[in-house]
Amino acid sequence: MRHGSLRRKRRPAARPRLDLLEPWEQAVDEQTARAHILPGVHGFPYRPRSTEDVPDGALGALRRAVGAGDADDLLVLPAHTRPGRLGDSRLQILTPSSVLGFGPGGVALWVGAPALPGVRVALHPQRVAAIETAHILLYARLTIFATDARLNVHYNAVSGHHLHPLVQSLRRRVARTELDMPDAPAPNAGLPYKWRRLLTSDAARLDDGDPVAAVAGALPVPRRSEAAYAAVVLTPRELVVLADPVHADTTGGRHGLDTHAIPRASIEQVRADGPLLRVRVCGADLQLPLGQELSARVVHEFARYLPIAP
């Protein structure tokens, strides 16, 4: 076979769908789901006050996996459900109780599956390529991409304030190297108040006082849809993409935010590919649907500070 006829295999897109089914999850009917979950606020994720509030065996396993110190380093997620895959209203996806643990060794997920409880995913900081969050009304998701693995959890957004400081601690461990910054202020003109606030919030910055440079603008949306915006933020340690949830039903407004936090030192290449901004990091391609205009502006504005594809 001639070498010219060989087709180069494309890297998979590192952007999971909201309805991914994990190996420890199962699709069940409503009656089965009710038998496994706690009602009301008792079923919300929480930071345990003491080790007595942690499922048996979880803390010890997470200490061994990533060095989680005590209950303050954990988020307990009681068994919960979400709508069935592909919108099947007859079934719900049941997730058993689980515990996220954070420590010097990264992040790990302990799952209390009845058959075989234990740590199912452990990601070390040097392997983390990107940290993604998706927030749509009361539904939220955290996805952490690594070189050869992925950690994915769904949770009620009401409990987001419990998870946020733990994710921030992971971001600081992952993005430790500071790189050069442009002398460009974050653009505020013409942006809604939500976005002017976000550009200087801890969604974009790891620490107060971190300089930021940003390229912001409107996202492509269907006709007669509410306007949507995104901002690509450069900080000394990260490239952060903030975007309205254009994949959601917006009849009640765009109540939510999608984020990607990418360590700058791990970025291998950035390029605009039509409506996509592609970021190659740790051997995987993140495909960010920012639209042709905004993707091209990002590449142009940050050409001196990111490894832009020729």
Rank of each mutant, 00 (worst) to 15 (best):
G4M: 14
R8H: 14
R10A: 12
A14Q: 01
R15N: 15
R15S: 15
R17F: 14
L18R: 13
L18E: 09
D19E: 11
L21Q: 08
W24E: 08
Q26Y: 04
A27L: 07
A33G: 06
A35I: 12
H36L: 09
L38E: 14
P45D: 02
P45F: 05
S50P: 00
E52Q: 13
L59I: 05
G60A: 04
A61S: 15
A65H: 03
V66C: 05
G69S: 13
D72K: 13
L77P: 05
A79H: 02
P83E: 03
G87C: 04
R90F: 08
R90L: 08
T95F: 00
P96M: 01
S97M: 08
S97A: 13
S98K: 06
V99K: 04
G103E: 02
P104Q: 03
G106Q: 02
V107F: 00
W110C: 08
W110A: 07
G112L: 03
A113R: 07
P114G: 10
A115F: 02
L116K: 12
L116H: 15
G118P: 03
G118I: 08
A122D: 12
L123S: 14
H124G: 09
H124A: 03
H124K: 11
Q126K: 14
Q126A: 13
Q126V: 12
I136K: 12
L137I: 14
Y139K: 07
A140I: 11
L142Y: 12
T143R: 04
I144G: 06
T147C: 04
V153H: 04
Y155V: 02
Y155N: 04
A157L: 13
L163Q: 03
H164K: 15
H164M: 10
L166S: 06
Q168A: 12
L170P: 04
R172K: 13
A175V: 11
L179V: 09
D180L: 15
P182D: 00
A186P: 10
A186S: 15
A186F: 02
P187C: 03
A189C: 07
L191T: 10
K194F: 05
L198Y: 08
T200H: 13
G209K: 05
G209C: 07
P211Q: 07
P211E: 01
V212P: 00
A214E: 06
A218T: 10
V221L: 11
S225K: 10
E226D: 14
A228L: 06
Y229L: 08
A230P: 00
A231Y: 01
T235E: 10
P236C: 10
R237K: 11
A248R: 04
A248G: 08
T251E: 02
G252Q: 13
G252L: 14
H255M: 14
L257K: 03
D258N: 14
P263H: 09
S266N: 01
S266H: 14
I267N: 08
I267W: 03
E268A: 04
R271K: 13
P275R: 07
L276A: 15
L276F: 14
R278F: 14
R280Q: 08
R280I: 08
C282K: 11
C282Y: 04
A284D: 10
L286P: 06
Q287M: 09
L290C: 06
G291L: 01
G291M: 09
Q292P: 01
Q292I: 08
E293P: 13
L294K: 02
L294I: 06
V299H: 09
H300K: 15
R304V: 00
L306H: 03
I308W: 06
P310D: 08
